[in-house]
Each structure stands twice: as structure tokens, then as C-alpha cells.
């Protein structure tokens, strides 16, 4: 599995399609924290909300990095769709976690309000949860579940856009609500459970659909 993860990660990095979501992420992150972003946890809410669609976008990039034919070869070499889709999910989660870490560290350096270690780890956890939810949404609608990139983009965009107005009815809303009220909450943990379940479900659905 490690060698498969290394191969898929190397392929994503070589393909450079990851640059678009990464640069958008860095650019908006820079704007969010260009001035006083507020109290520590409150300041994290903007970047956590941003990470959700960016992680979904990055997951689609990871899932579709290999073209259809090369993915077939990889599936045969690795011994089945489940292994390849699990490895792709791990790569997407690794990319998402790296971005979550960056988003958690950024305001610690730039925000004038001092951060405690506890606030930092709550922020890191919240970002990781939002990233997991994004990865789950991205993988759920990417190849091999949807064969067409157009359908994938429309479905992911639709779900992401619908998530925000639903507010606290969604796991993302639980996280953003907790951060927005400057408090940590068990609901963040539950949202993480939903995120892990979503990523796992995307792998299972993909393996069945393939």
C-alpha cells in the first residue's frame, strides 16, 4: 500500500494539476489573514470554511490524475480497484492534512492575538475535519463513480455550494459554528467521524461502481 501511495502521490505532483487548488488556497488564506482576523478560534472559521471546497477540488485532482487507461494498468498491478481507490483516498487525505496544518499554523504567525497550544490543536483538528469532509465529497463524485469530469465538477460544486446555506444541519456547519463562537465542541469530533465515514463510503462506492 505504501508503494502505491508513493506512486499516486508522485503522479499527482508530476502532473501539476494540484497547483490550481493549492494556489487558490494560499491566495485566499493570505487575504483572510492579511489583517486582524479576530479571536483565535474565530479566526480559524474562515480558513476552515475555505478548506472544505479546496480539499474537495484536490481530491478530484488526485482521483483523476491518472487517465482511464493508465488507471486500468495500476488496478491490475496493485491487485484490484479497492487497493487503488484506498491509496488514492490516502493521498487525497495527506494533501488535505498538509493544507490543514498550514491553515492552522498561518494565523499563529500572522494574527496579533496570541494562540495557546490548546487553541492551535483545536484549530488543527477543525481544519482536518473540514478537509476530510471535502475529500469525501470530492471522491464520492470523481472517477470511477462518475466517468465524466463535467459531471464530477457539477456534482461537487453543487454539493459544496448547498452545504453552506444549510448551516448547522451539516457536519461542516457544526465545525464552523463551534469556531465562530470561539469554543471547542464535541460536535467537531462527530463531524470528524462523519468525514472519515464519507471518505470510506466513497472508496466502497467507487470499488463497487468500477
Amino acid at each position: 500500500m505504501i508503494s502505491l501511495v508513493r506512486y499516486l502521490a508522485a503522479d499527482v505532483l508530476r502532473g501539476q494539476r494540484y497547483l490550481a487548488p493549492l494556489l487558490v488556497f494560499l491566495g485566499v488564506l493570505g487575504m483572510l489573514f492579511a489583517s486582524d482576523a479576530g479571536q483565535p478560534l474565530e479566526a480559524y472559521s474562515g480558513s476552515a470554511a475555505l478548506l472544505y471546497p479546496i480539499a474537495a477540488w484536490m481530491a478530484v485532482v488526485v482521483a483523476t490524475s491518472e487517465d482511464v487507461v493508465r488507471r486500468e494498468i495500476t488496478v491490475v498491478s496493485a491487485g484490484g480497484w479497492s487497493r487503488v481507490l484506498t491509496a488514492a483516498a490516502l493521498v487525497a487525505v495527506l494533501f488535505a492534512f498538509a493544507m490543514a496544518l498550514l491553515a492552522a499554523v498561518w494565523p499563529v504567525v500572522t494574527n496579533p492575538h496570541p494562540y495557546t497550544a490548546g487553541q492551535f490543536f483545536v484549530g488543527l483538528g477543525a481544519h482536518t475535519v473540514c478537509a476530510l469532509l471535502g475529500v469525501g465529497v470530492g471522491l464520492m463524485f470523481a472517477r470511477p463513480v462518475f466517468d465524466s469530469i463535467g459531471r464530477t465538477v457539477l456534482a461537487v460544486f453543487g454539493v459544496v455550494v448547498l452545504t453552506y446555506p444549510l448551516g448547522r444541519a451539516t457536519p461542516l456547519g457544526w465545525v464552523l459554528d463551534a469556531l465562530g463562537h470561539n469554543r471547542s465542541s464535541l460536535s467537531v469530533l462527530w463531524a470528524g467521524v462523519v468525514g472519515v465515514a464519507l471518505v470510506s463510503a466513497a472508496v466502497v462506492v467507487g470499488a463497487r461502481r468500477a
Binding site: 508503494s3 506512486y7 508522485a10 503522479d11 487517465d67 487507461v69 486500468e72 494498468i73 491490475v76 498491478s77
Partner: peptide, 29 residues
């Protein structure tokens, strides 16, 4: 357990080098 597969048309737009691709495939297998 070990099946090798060559599709009808190998893709022409692969950014990875041949040596890197074969090394990765060797490790995967």
C-alpha cells in the same frame, strides 16, 4: 496473484519518466 496487463492503447500524455514509472510499478508489485 500476479497479472500483467497491456491495454490496447497506452496513453501518450504521461508526465512521469519511463524509469520512474517502471520503478514505481516494480515497487507496487
Amino acid at each position: 496473484a500476479s497479472v500483467g496487463y497491456v491495454p490496447e492503447r497506452f496513453p501518450s500524455d504521461v508526465k512521469m519518466s519511463a524509469s520512474s514509472y517502471l520503478a514505481h510499478m516494480g515497487r507496487v508489485r
